[in-house]
Each structure stands twice: as C-alpha cells, then as structure tokens.
Write a protein that binds this DNA or RNA. Structure first.
Length: 599
RNA sequence: CGGGCUAUGGCGCAGCUUGGUAGCGCGCCUGACUGGGGGUCAGGAGGUCGUGGGUUCGAAUCCCGCUAGCCCGACCA
C-alpha cells in the first residue's frame, strides 16, 4: 500500500487549533488525523482512520484469542430495555434522547449492558451454552456536560465492550481473569503503559473491579501509589485505622465561648488564644468538622447525611458516593451533593458553623435538640477514645475534649476523606503519592444485577432455573488513540509506535530531478510488493523543509529520503523517534527498510 | 449548574477604547525564480464581522437580548 501525499486527503496545519489544549488534540488536528465536527464529536480523516483501525485490529485479535465472539449492536435503541434497569431515568441528561415519527422514545446508546443481556436471554437457556463471551467495537454516545481534550473525552466515542455470561461465580472469576490478561496484552501491543488499579465496584455491585490507568499529568482520574507497589483509585483507598483508646482518665468535656469561629481556621486560632494546651498548639487535626451532605435517593427523596472528620481533612464527594450504599440500604444509585441552605433550614438544630454531636450521649444524634432523620457517619480515624474540639450546636460556642464513644456516637464509619500525599498505604507498603491517569479500560464483575433485572436465567444441571452472572469489560478505543498520541510526541509532531502507525515508512523526494522521482517510485513500488505500508511524499513542487516538517508532524516511525545523497548512491534513512540517520546504499535500501519494519 | 474568557475568509489573529463601510500572517490559485529544514517576487480568489433588536445620516465598533464555543470547578460506565 502506497499513500501518495500528492493526492492523499490531507491538509497539515502550521498553527495549533485555538480550541485545543493538550498535545494529542493539537497534533492530531494539525497533522490531519481528525477534524472537529461538533463539540466532543470528531471526523476521522484517512491517516487517523488508519491508526484507529490498527488499534481496533489489535483489540479484536486479543479478544478473539480468549474466545470472545464479535457482534454489533445498533447505536440507536428503543428505551424499553433501559427502563427495565431504571437507567432511562438514572442516566438523566447524560444520554442523547430522540423520538421517532410516532413519538416513541429512542436513545443513542451510552453503553450496551441491557442489549447484550437481552440478546443472550433471547438465544440461550441452558448452562451448556455457557460460558459465553461476547463483544463489540462500537460507537457510544454520552452527552457529557463538558467534553474535553479532543478525543480524550468525547460525546461520541468508540468503545470495545465485552460481557461474560456464566452460571456460577467460579466461571465469572475465570472470565474476569481472562479479560484482565487480554487487556494487559492489548496495552502491551499498543505500546501504552497502563497500571491496573483497584477501583470501587460502587453501586454497580459485584465483588471486583479494576481500572487500567495510563499515567499522565493530563489524566482526569487521580490515583495513588506507594513505593511498595500499592496502586488504587482514590475512591478505593482504605484508611489505616488507629487503635481504640481507653477513655478512662480523660477529663470531661467543656463548652467554651468561641465567638466568630465559623471556620476551622478561625476555630484553631481561637482555641490557641482562649484555651492554650500544654502539650503543644491546637491544630486543625484536633477539631472534628461536621459536613452536611444531601443524599439523593433513587426514590427521589432527599436524605441528610452528616459526616464527622478531622478538621484538617476534606470530604471527597466521589468517595462518599462510592461508599454510601452500605449505610443507606435503599438499592440503586445514590447521588451526593453539598447540603443547600434550604436543607439546613429544615433542620434548625443544625447551627451552621457550630454543628456537632448532641452532647453527652452515646447515641448517634446531632444538633441542639438532637437529630431526626439524619444519618451521622464518621471518618475511620474517629475511633473510640479520641478527643475532639467540635461545634456545641450554639452560635459562637464549641465543645472541647468531647470523647468519641463516651460523649457521642455515630451510625457508622465511611471512607470519605480526600486521600493525601503521604498518607500510609493500607497494605503497609509505605506512604502514598498521588498521580493522574487516563482510564483506558475498566473491567468489573457485574454479578447478577442486569441478569436479574432483565430476567436472564438458564437451566442448570439439576433442571433448575438459575440467574446468570455477568462481567463487563471496556476499552476506550478512540481514547487509546488520543493517549497514544499524548505519550508519543515531541516538539515536532507525533511519534507513533510501530504497531499503530498509519504507515511503516515515510518515503520522500527532495530535489526536482526526474531521476530522484524515478528512483523513489521504484523504491515505493518494491516496498509495496514486499507488503510494507508507505506514505510517499511525491509532491513535485514542495520544498524540502515543508516535506521534512510534514514527515515529522505525521510521525511515521521510519523516514526515507531520496535526495542529494542519490548522487553518491545512498538513500538517507531516519528514525523518527531517535532522530538518528543512516546512509544506506540504494541497492540495499528496500531490504534495509523491510527489516527495519519487521525488526 | 457556578466562575472566567471568546465569537471578524479554511486556520491563527488585528481592528472596537475615540462609529465613516474590513486588514495582517498562514493556507489556497496563477506565473517566475529557488530546490536538504516551512525560501523569494509578482498577480489573484475567498468575509451577510455568531444572531435578533436598538441608538445613529452612518455600526465589526456603542447599548440590550439571545445563541454557540473554549477554559476552570461541579458532574461523568
């Protein structure tokens, strides 16, 4: 295959597009791989499509290798399956909805769990049919509130999604392990560094979930790792819980006037001024901050949750959302947001800025008159016997020396605090550092959630109906192209790994003599005959500088230059990544390039 | 949804403060020169200045509304 630049549908840009922020987006547009069609929606040009196809081919091969069978669903779907699992509602504004001429509701699929489940239900009904691994490589549509960074977060994107169907948990474990291995092979072949990190299964249920994160500063996901090898998504990190302390001998609590101290900073300042401590200055870590949140239940109800945590820590709403399910057993997804003024008005016992547990009871009650209908959860660091400065439920007053378990109680503990650099890893492997990454893939054990909701059952060996257990496994294919561009570029342009480059060799002619073009034509034809994919810059009136610039921008791994060296019988062969160049005798150049490509 | 910014030819921008009928660079077309790092010269094509209204003799420019986009945050299998 030879792509001639004289006719290739391509226009490279000298300047960065103004709406692009990250390198991959700028370069993919500048080098003529993609064009923006609408916010978060991109058109693939010939070069981009070639890269995309190569990524897809690798994914396909590895999925087939573990017994995956490719299918293809429509992107345009009726709403009914999504109503059965409640996602027609749960997805909210996140999905593109439309109506047909009769007024029936349709959607552009944001994900296909329902359709896969129904397809298996449609065709299979015996344990003998299982396990089954089905996958597709297909467009997904999500009406993201804020698409960003080009291909990295689009509103239309391509995902490889697969689903495993098994009769029992052991089968699911096997399917999960196979997918995990396949994913590691896929990313290795793509030349994309990924870390499998522990993720929360969250409201999806299921016992196990890992994300494959590609570490990069422009990533949208924060994860933590320790020198000892612990890696986890921040939502999944667990706190190292201190030992309980025997409260015997601790002095009783004491209420003090602390005027104008509605924030932790002002409180710490006042505490050191009004009640200095012999053993050292009070710090924010000595205070117990009570943050009021509102949980949005699937029923539409709004339930208040107060979280007590050390004052030097901040609540991470994502972590709350991921872990709240255990404390509010309502089933379904629970949304979490900061409480509104209206929420506080409905609970006058909660005095803003001075909220604390009801004093002197071990029960989990809050506020001046004691709470009703509020769930009080605390950070795991708040163990029995710890002593705190916290709000006294009266404007301008705080209580000092309030001892957990002795003077106040709580409904439960929750992992909810923002993980900080330097916090200990839960497995004792050292202090955590935070890093950013792009989620390239996510695998999880769905269990029976969808099968139950859609009534997917098969007959087992005993002739009994059993609900099938499922796994779900995704790879962001278009996102992989963006991540590859992001991690493989320099200040001159893209530098594709060999396995995904749009071509094997970028052959160019510099000069105008007919012999140069004739020789380059010969080389191009021979390379084609040997199965090498060639981008051939045969443009007759383009200066050498432009050709070099375009070659480096486009980023094919090997660049061959037929030019002034030809008089000495050599062709220059450059390595795009290292920049090293070598003069190869004309007679050997085809063989040289073939082995470089297959190398 | 909150905060900030922007909207002028295919792309990147100036012009707006102080109203007078649109300009620059890149790209594109023609020709000549040049020919290993985005070269030079000459001549061209291409714009209802996001949109609706208002002020004015006259609006890209001033005023009001709307829409869209970008960035940060919230949100997001």
């Amino acid at each position: 295959m030879v792509l001639r630049l004289s006719t290739l549908f391509l226009r490279t840009l000298r300047e960065d597009p103004v709406d692009a922020e990250v390198a991959s987006h700028k370069l993919l547009v500048r080098a003529g791989y993609i064009r923006r069609a609408a916010p978060g929606i991109y058109t693939w040009l010939p070069l981009g499509l070639r890269v995309l196809n190569k990524v897809e081919a690798i994914v396909r091969e590895e999925m087939n290798a573990i017994g995956g069978q490719e299918v293809h669903f429509p992107a345009l779907l009726p709403k009914e399956p999504y109503e059965a699992t409640n996602r027609w509602t749960e997805y909210g504004e996140g999905i593109f909805r439309l109506k047909d001429r009769k007024g029936a509701d349709y959607l552009l699929a944001p994900t296909h769990e329902e359709m896969f489940t129904l397809l298996v239900k449609d065709l299979y009904n015996s344990y003998k049919d299982l396990p089954a691994y089905l996958y597709q490589i297909q467009n997904k549509y999500r009406d993201e509130a804020r698409p960003r960074a080009g291909l990295l977060r689009g509103r239309e994107f391509i995902m490889k999604d697969s689903y495993s169907f098994d009769v029992d948990d052991a089968g699911l474990d096997t399917a999960y392990a196979k997918h995990r291995e396949a994913y590691l092979r896929i990313f290795a072949r793509l030349g994309l560094e990924v870390l499998p990190v522990l993720a929360t299964a969250g409201a999806m249920g299921g016992s196990r979930s890992e994300e494959f994160l590609h570490p990069t500063d422009i990533g949208e996901d924060t994860f933590v790792r320790s020198a000892g090898g612990y890696v986890a998504n921040v939502e999944a990190v667990t706190t190292v819980v201190p030992e309980d302390i025997d409260p015997a001998g601790l002095p009783p609590f004491e209420v003090r006037d602390t005027p104008d101290t509605p924030t932790i900073d002002t409180l710490v300042e006042a505490a050191n001024r009004l009640a200095p401590r012999a053993s050292g200055a009070w710090t924010a870590a000595d205070t117990l901050k009570n943050v009021v949140l509102a949980a949005l239940l699937p029923t539409g109800e709004r339930h208040l949750v107060v979280i007590g945590l050390p004052g030097d820590r901040a609540v991470d709403l994502k972590r709350v959302e991921a872990n709240i399910g255990a404390h509010l057993p309502v089933g379904g997804e629970i949304g979490i947001e900061a409480a509104s003024e209206e929420d506080l008005r409905r609970h006058p016992g909660l005095v803003k800025g001075y909220i604390g547990p009801a004093l002197g009871t071990e029960r989990a009650v809050l506020g001046a008159e004691g709470s009703t209908g509020i769930t009080y959860l605390v950070d795991p660091r708040v163990v029995s016997g710890t002593s705190w400065i916290t709000g006294a439920n009266e404007h301008g007053k705080h209580v000092f020396g309030l001892v957990a378990g002795r003077d106040f109680g709580w409904d439960g503990t929750i992992e909810c605090v923002e993980v900080r650099e330097g916090d200990p890893a839960p497995d004792g492997s050292g202090p955590l550092e935070t890093a950013r990454g792009i989620e390239m893939g996510h695998i999880f054990q769905l269990g029976r959630k969808y099968a139950a909701a859609l009534d997917l059952k098969v007959l087992d060996q005993n002739g009994k109906l059993v609900t099938v257990t499922m796994g779900s496994y995704g790879i962001g294919v278009t996102r992989a192209v963006a991540a590859l561009a992001e991690s493989n570029h320099d200040d001159r342009g893209l530098v594709w790994p060999r396995n995904v480059a749009p071509a094997d060799v970028h052959l160019m002619v510099t000069g105008k003599q007919a012999e140069l073009f004739a020789e380059a034509e010969r080389i191009a034809a021979e390379l084609e005959a040997r199965g090498v994919e060639v981008i051939f810059d045969d443009r007759p009136k383009v200066s050498a500088g432009v050709k070099f610039g375009d070659a480096e921008l486009i980023g094919v791994p090997t660049i061959a230059v037929v030019g002034r060296g030809l008089a000495d019988g050599v062709v220059e062969v450059k390595d795009r990544a290292s920049g090293t160049a070598e003069n190869v005798p004309v007679a050997d150049v085809v063989e040289y390039l073939v082995s470089a490509v297959r190398g």
